[in-house]
Structures are given as structure tokens and as C-alpha cells.
Nucleic acid binder design. Structure first.
Lengths: 236, 236
DNA sequence: CCAGAAAGTTAGGTCATACTAACTTATTTT
DNA sequence: AAAATAAGTTAGTATGACCTAACTTTCTGG
């Protein structure tokens, strides 16, 4: 019955509200539904708090909400989420390219700046570093007018034994993991080949450049791959 | 009797708290007392709201507060204010020099970023543009360790007829005024000479470069001057 | 030196955002 | 399909930061 309630147009969003929309976007991959508990977990707040906020966002026409059945972004909610995502990723790219900010810390800094930076600033940043299409971790940057590349990739954990691929993206939140990946030189753009995978979620052996190395599956799940011409298919 | 109450160390400050400290610093020129009403006016909030916040800041050891008698910054409050001021001015300088941000809008953008940017970011910005000593409006940038040039200057409205001086600083808040000053080429670094001043707060005639022009006293009050070798002294 | 004005405070209210505890709805399992 | 579990919601509370209205304190000028 209910859904978007009042639909009040374009007020400016608070920082928490932007964070909710980003989280909901991430959970639903842009269009799918998001569960209260999952939102709560992503934002590290209590599920009860989510109920309240979700109601407010629905009142502003940003979410479609049915009690006890999670939320989806409305068109305007999706636009707001992508605006924030663009800010975040442009800022990350700018910090990294223009200020030599270390790879593993740009995410944290961008998390705070994305709520304060104006569109004008973000556009100037993007222009200054040549309108980047991805952030330093390989995540695609939404355009000004709200479109994104939503291609889905396999994770390194899913890549078949014997297959090769190019790293397109790594998860950006954990600095420690990022430092480790950099150390292994598992970075966007690098070519990797899966050599073997031990059973029962065991380690995955792969080659990167001329190195051979072995990583656990939960690390591998954080590395997204564009497969190359293949002789294995699907899962190994 | 009362004063700083609990003295809890270094919690992180909220954006409003930082704005209060900046305002109090500006009013007291770093060390003097600030009146409730003046704080309220600067921040465009009701005086009653100031009483509440001032109490909270005093509880945190940032202000010395005596009921009915205004506030002063404590040493730790002064440090916090200067930290924010440094952020603000480094950001202004960086936006202007590194991103070609227009003169009249850097203040507004910096007002929001100053609360979100980390010290590391601010230091990187400063380093990137060569450790500037003043912001684009000529205001001195506090150093990392919390010292500032607190030299006081005459305003153009006070400069004696016949005297010359170099513009060191203009007030940064009003974009329209900044555009007008730029149009008149009254900018930091420019040499000006006061030619005449009409009585009863009348217009001030001056020369800037090879131009001769005339401005009102309230505009002139927003332009700070370092006097040059002089034949007039004091007020005309 | 006292009355009125100015300055500052308290009282009481609102809103956004969070919390915990208790309850309801939905799903799963047997 | 009832019981157990998981998911989600309401109720009630807290905090920060603001508001207006009413009150108190301080200052000032005759």
C-alpha cells in the first residue's frame, strides 16, 4: 500500500541520508531491494534505527518502502545515490592522482568529503585529472547525468582454474587488505591466471606477471576480474 | 567562579562547535572576550542558542565562561580554532591555485570542506601549492603548530589622505563585494594612494595603478592596508 | 542611583539521528 | 500447520543543535 509518501522535491540531503542511499544502492546493485538488517550492518547501526530513517527517506520520495519488506530506491533516490557515488569516486581519484594520497586511505578521506564537496568542485576535480572513468580501486565513476557502467564481473574466487583475466576492481574499504593486495601486485589492470584451487574453500594459486602466489578465498572474493579468452568456463 | 568545567581532552569537534570557535576567535582577535550577541550574529543564530552551546564548549574545556559575561577561548580552544582556520585558509588557497576556483566562491566551499578534511589532506594541499602563507584574500594561514601572524592593519577607510599603502587583505565572505573589488583591481599586493576623503562618511578617492576611483567608506573598511612611507600619518 | 534598555539566560519545544527493550510479522523447520 | 527462529517494527529514551517566549542580570543615562 504505502510507498513513497510525500514527494517533496529536492531538499538537500544530510550526510547520514546520503550514506543510507549509498548503502541501499550497493546492496540492491542499483535497482534491487535492500533488507533492513543489511542496511543496518553496512552502516554499523542498529536495525531499529534503520526503520526510522527509511520512513523519513520514503517520505521524501527517495525510497519505495513497504513495512516488513525492505526498500527499493525510487528514481530520485537512485539519482541521489549516484550523485554521492560520483562524488566519492571522483574525490578518491583526485586525491590519488593529484595529491599523491596513498591508495589505502583515499576511501576513508572521501567518505567524509563526499558530503561536503559541491558538484562544482567535484566537476573541477574530474576535469583536472582528465575525466577519469574509474576510481583508484577500479570502480566506475557515474557521469554527471547519472549513468554508470553496471557490468558485473566474476570475482577471482569464481574464476575457473586455468582461466586468465584482468583485474578490474578491488574492494576499497579495508586499508590493510589494500596494502596486502598491492604487495602481491594484485591491482586493477594486472593480468592473473588461476593455476589451482584447493577443495573445501582452500587457497587459490595464481600467477600475476611472473610471480606465482596463493591467496585465500575470502580475499579472492574481493577482487573482480574481466575474463580473457578462456579454456575452462564457469567454475572450475 | 565557573570557567572551564570538565576538561575532557581531545574529542573530535562537531562542525557547529568548530564554527563557534572560529567566530569567537575572530571576535576576540585570538585572545579577547566575545559577547553572546556577537557570536549569535556572526553565526546567524538566536542568542539563546549560543548560551547552550557555549556551556557545552566550556564543559569540554574549550572556553572560559562566566554567566552574563561572555566567553574567552582557553588555550585548547584557541588551538582548535586555529586548526580550523588553517584548514579553511589552506583549502581556499588550494582551490584557487590548484583548481582555478573563482575568487569569490572559495570561501563558501571552504566553509564546508574545513569540517571534513583531515589534517593530512590539508597538509598535502599546502605542500602541493608550496606552503602558502596567506589565503587568496590575503589572510594569514596558521602553521601546523598553531602560530599565526596577528599583525593588525589599518583599513583603507582609516588611511590618511595623501598616504599610500599596499593592500594586504580583503574581507572574504561576500562574493559580490569580492567581484566588485576585483573589478576595481583592489586586490592583495596592489598599491593604493588615498587622494581625498569627503566629509560625513563620504566617498574616498584613491588611485590604484594608473586608475583613479572612488569608493564608499563601508567598502573601504573591508580592505586592509600596510602603509608605505608616508606623508600624512594617522587619520586625515 | 534608579529606571529603562540592552544583553544574556532559562524554560520548554522541535527535529534528526541514534539507542535498547519489547513486540509483531515473516520464514523456516520439523 | 504449529513451533521456533529470523527479520522488522514500535515505544520510549538520549543527545546535539536549534527555536521562541519569558525571565534575569548588567549597563547606561538622566
Amino acid at each position: 500500500m504505502s510507498a513513497a509518501r510525500e514527494e517533496t522535491g529536492t531538499e538537500t540531503l544530510t550526510a547520514p541520508a546520503e550514506d543510507y542511499l549509498k548503502a541501499i544502492y550497493a546492496i540492491g546493485k542499483g535497482s534491487g531491494p535492500a533488507a533492513t538488517n543489511e542496511i543496518a550492518q553496512r552502516l554499523a547501526i542498529a536495525p531499529a534505527s534503520v526503520s526510522g530513517m527509511v520512513r523519513r527517506l520514503a517520505d521524501q520520495g527517495l525510497l519505495a518502502y513497504e513495512r516488513y519488506h525492505g526498500v527499493k530506491l525510487t528514481e530520485s533516490g537512485r539519482r541521489a545515490a549516484l550523485r554521492t557515488l560520483r562524488r566519492h569516486r571522483v574525490i578518491e581519484a583526485y586525491l590519488s592522482q593529484a595529491l599523491g594520497y596513498p591508495w589505502d586511505r583515499v576511501h576513508h578521506e572521501a567518505e567524509r568529503l563526499e558530503h561536503a564537496a559541491s558538484d562544482e568542485l567535484v566537476d573541477r576535480m574530474a576535469a583536472t585529472i582528465g575525466e577519469p572513468e574509474v576510481d583508484p580501486h577500479g570502480a566506475p565513476i557515474p557521469t554527471r547525468d547519472g549513468s554508470v557502467d553496471e557490468t558485473e564481473y566474476l570475482s577471482l574466487a569464481q574464476l575457473a582454474v586455468g582461466s586468465a583475466g584482468v583485474v578490474v576492481r578491488v574492494s576499497d574499504e579495508d586499508p590493510e587488505m589494500l596494502r596486502y593486495l598491492a604487495e602481491l601486485s594484485i591491482l586493477p589492470g594486472k593480468k592473473v591466471t588461476v593455476k589451482s584451487r584447493a577443495p573445501y574453500d582452500g587457497p587459490i594459486t595464481l600467477s600475476v606477471g611472473r610471480q606465482e602466489l596463493s591467496i585465500g578465498p575470502s580475499l579472492a572474493a574481493n577482487v573482480l576480474i574481466a575474463p580473457l579468452a578462456d579454456r575452462g568456463g564457469g567454475r572450475g
